[in-house]
């Protein structure tokens, strides 16, 4: 059923990004940044539980949030490629976050009026958190972009590295088009416009050039075709569950 698949995509995006941010715990450039990053990771994990929980209910095969998170392999994961990109340096972590937050924010805003009441409720809970995420990552993009020549160069390098992964969320396949048709999800075009608008505003303030919106975009994550990185992320994330399956914890 298309809706289950759609819920998995939302849940997996939040889950994989949360997992990656969690790896930075204790490694942030400053104590306060460390707190903020792990806070965002926790927010995303909370959202993951809502998405995957609902997906499991609809599926009705007894797969709860834990089973979905820990017992699927990379081919069954539906996250976009952007979130499985490496943390890299702080510029890369923040640019990845900023691209994700910008899209995430407009998507959640769009999902507030979803015809699926449960989805609208999850979006309503998420939008408060995501608003903060977006404010924070935008602020840091400006600080680092308009900081020193070194921080500016690092931001530019991160943007060059990640821009090709920003388009996947706007390339709707049949499944997403069906969701739009049913009024469950917002259309891609409006989201993409809002995304490009916000990115260009923040980049202008950050003295960073706007990348080419028409550039070639990577895709495949939503259909389960991932980079090899996801395998490593999952191996670490799922180890305990796979070593001791079915344990209460």
């Amino acid at each position: 059923m298309a809706k289950i698949e759609y819920l998995l995509r939302q849940g997996d995006n939040a889950l994989i990004l949360s997992q990656q941010l969690s790896q930075l715990c204790g490694k942030g450039p400053a104590l306060e940044e460390d707190m903020a990053l792990t806070n965002v990771a926790l927010d995303l994990l909370g959202q993951t539980r809502m998405w995957l929980g609902y997906a499991g209910e609809l599926e009705g095969r007894g797969r709860d949030e834990d089973r979905l998170a820990y017992l699927r392999d990379s081919r069954e994961f539906r996250n976009v490629l952007l979130v499985e990109q490496p943390n890299g340096d702080y510029a890369q972590t923040m640019v990845r976050q900023f691209f994700f937050d910008t899209w995430h924010y407009f998507l959640m805003r769009g999902l507030l009026s979803s015809t699926d009441r449960r989805i609208a409720e999850i979006a309503e809970k998420s939008v408060k958190e995501v608003t903060y995420h977006l404010r924070r990552s935008g602020d840091l993009v400006v600080r680092l972009g308009d900081g020193t020549p070194v921080s500016h160069a690092k931001m530019q390098a991160a943007i060059d590295e990640l821009w090709t992964y920003t388009g996947e969320v706007f390339i709707y396949d049949e499944l997403e088009l069906a969701m739009v048709e049913q009024g469950v999800a917002p259309a891609a075009e409006a989201l993409r416009e809002a995304f490009l608008q916000h990115v260009s505003e923040v980049f202008a303030e950050a003295t960073l050039p706007m990348p080419d919106p028409g550039a070639y975009m990577q895709r495949g994550g939503k259909q389960g075709r991932h980079s090899e990185r996801l395998g490593y992320i999952l191996a670490e994330m799922q180890f305990l569950q796979r070593a001791y399956p079915g344990v209460e914890w």
């Binding site: 306060e32 707190m35 903060y132 924070r136 602020d139």
Partner: peptide
């Protein structure tokens, strides 16, 4: 108290550290 480069970041950090939102 906390360390921050400017007031805006101090507010953001205070929210994360002290209010739990």
């Amino acid at each position: 108290s906390l360390h921050a480069p400017d007031a805006e970041m101090a507010i953001n950090n205070a929210r994360d550290v002290y209010t739990r939102r």
